[in-house]
Design a protein around this nucleic acid. Structure first.
Length: 473
RNA sequence: GUCCCCUUCGUCUAGAGGCCUAGGACAUUACCCUUUCACGGUAGUAACACGGGUUCGAAUCCCGUAGGGGACGCCA
């Protein structure tokens, strides 16, 4: 039987990076086994679900290259849970008919009072089954009931989880949960089970915040006589401080990583290594991941998010990436920094600078910041350290060097370097003592890519213009 | 409060009873390379939460304790 997994986010905000890790694992698992990976949007909460959030989910998935196999579904490209509400209600009715569910007429206020009382007495907060055995004739007039599961009250329910192992809970711990709301819409518990069954999901791979829900879901499967899928609950991703990863930690959404200049393949690789390992392998291509990934490699303990490590993985993929592609991704960031659009010639310059830029950066944003100086057309802003290098003596040398450079016909990095080396040797100077002021004059900073390469890229005219700005007056 | 799960360097992890003097990666420290900063290279610091068992032998199996996380909604 082919394996079918699904990713089932709810469109109520941004797409959480932890959810994306779940999606990655579902996707890899399906790919590894030649199965299918489906997307289902859990949009039954009408008050909180928005079309924008759905769009955010789709974009996030596409950015990471996690393609789903039901893109043609229903003309909208994914399975909508809300669209199945009639089916959910039908299942609830079937359960009432077969005696595994019943109507409950208790009002929300009444239940709040019940929970408050339980809490006060230190009792577990659970529905007490007050309508479980009452006959329909007791029903108050004019109130539409909710439908509750008639859960077994004795014995135990067992979850066999592919990650967590065998977990048992006493049925006395579980109460009669709501399946269908008073307005006839399904609750999450009912909807997931019905949809997972109807979609033929063979492996439910999801975050372990759903682990304790699984007991109750199994009871629904049993009530309907449906085959129970394999469950695999993934440990959560925590923030650097060990608390649930949230806005407080700065970057909870996938889009945050795109905006901060991380490459999708780097994010994917980093996420893959959270709670999963293949020996000592760290840098793992998508192809290798598909070949290697399986449920038995998943660990049980939660992982903390480490931006430093993400940075180093990203640096690796930046070094590997095509210069042209990096230019396309960096240009918009650079344009924002410069406050103007780049011309094609400037983009070409950026591409030619890229080999010197990319080994120095962990993110595309860093590349852009590092590259700004190439594009200054007026005076060059100079930082304090660079200013200090431009002593009267240094300026004299730069002036002399400018004269020598003026004569060069081949303005390449090696030939410029030769000029500097020969000059330094003739004057008994260390190369650094003239190269650093040169760097300061050209870039306005003490830190930059190799300066002779920078000079070659800038071109003779621009180099002389920038040097002249310091020595010609 | 009740129930469930988890626990190896600061972080991600390798580890399937002897291969462990506990390995790798990131971070960190020192040195080398060097026109700056990086890259790269070399070396170093650093962990089996604690307490009991089982066993000739335990990071690995069992039981407690502590700590962390999750679930207890007419949210998903």
């Amino acid at each position: 039987m082919p394996i079918i997994t699904r990713f089932a986010p709810s469109p109520t905000g941004y797409l959480h990076i932890g959810s994306v890790r779940t999606a990655l694992f579902c996707w890899l698992f399906a790919k590894h086994h030649g199965g299918q990976f489906l997307l289902r949007v859990e949009d039954t909460d009408r008050a909180r679900s928005t079309p924008e959030s759905v769009q955010t989910i789709l974009e996030g998935m596409e950015w990471l290259g996690l393609d789903w196999d039901n893109k043609d579904y229903d003309g909208q490209g994914y399975y909508s849970q809300f669209a199945q509400r009639a089916r959910h209600a039908e299942v609830a009715r079937q359960m009432v008919a077969n005696g595994t569910a019943y109507p409950c007429y208790a009002s929300p206020e009444e239940l709040d009072a019940m929970r408050a009382e339980q809490k006060e007495k230190g009792l577990p907060q659970r529905y007490d089954g007050r309508w479980r055995d009452r006959s329909a004739s007791d029903a108050p007039a004019g109130i539409s009931p909710v439908i509750r599961l008639k859960a077994p009250q004795t014995g135990e329910t067992v979850v066999t989880d592919a990650v967590m192992g065998t977990i048992t809970v006493q049925n006395s711990q579980l109460d009669d949960m709501v399946l269908l709301r008073a307005d006839g819409t399904p609750t999450y518990m009912l909807a997931v089970v019905v949809d997972d069954h109807d979609m033929g999901i063979t492996h439910v791979v999801r975050g372990d915040d759903h682990l304790t829900n699984t007991f109750r879901q199994i009871q629904i499967y049993k009530a309907m006589g449906w085959e129970i899928p394999v469950f695999a609950h993934l440990p959560m991703i925590l923030g650097p401080d060990g608390a649930k990863l949230s806005k407080r930690h700065g970057a909870p959404a996938v889009s945050d990583y795109r905006d901060r200049g991380y490459l999708p393949e780097a994010v994917q690789n980093y996420l893959l290594r959270l709670c999963w390992a293949h020996g000592d392998d760290e840098i793992i291509s998508t192809e290798q991941a598909i070949a290697w990934f399986d449920l038995d490699g998943i660990g049980k303990s939660p992982a903390r998010f480490d931006f430093a490590k993400l940075g180093s993985v990203n640096a690796h993929y930046i070094k590997q990436a095509e210069d042209r592609r990096l230019t396309d991704l960096t240009a918009p960031i650079l344009e924002r920094l410069l406050g103007q659009a780049l011309t094609q010639a400037q983009k070409d310059l950026l591409t030619r600078a890229m080999p010197d830029l990319k080994p120095r950066a962990q993110t595309l944003v860093e590349i852009a910041e590092m590259a700004v100086f190439y594009f200054h057309t007026g005076s060059i802003p100079v930082d304090e350290k660079a200013q200090k290098l431009l002593t009267p003596e240094a300026k004299q040398h730069l002036s002399a060097l400018a004269e020598l450079l003026k004569e060069k016909t081949d303005f390449t990095a090696p030939s410029i370097e030769n000029v500097f080396r020969a000059y330094a040797e003739a004057k008994g100077l260390k190369l650094g003592s003239i190269a650093q002021p040169f760097r300061a004059a050209l870039t306005g900073s003490t830190v930059s890519p190799p300066i002779f390469g920078v000079a070659a890229l800038l071109g003779k005219q621009e180099v002389l213009r920038r040097v002249c700005g310091w020595v010609c007056n």
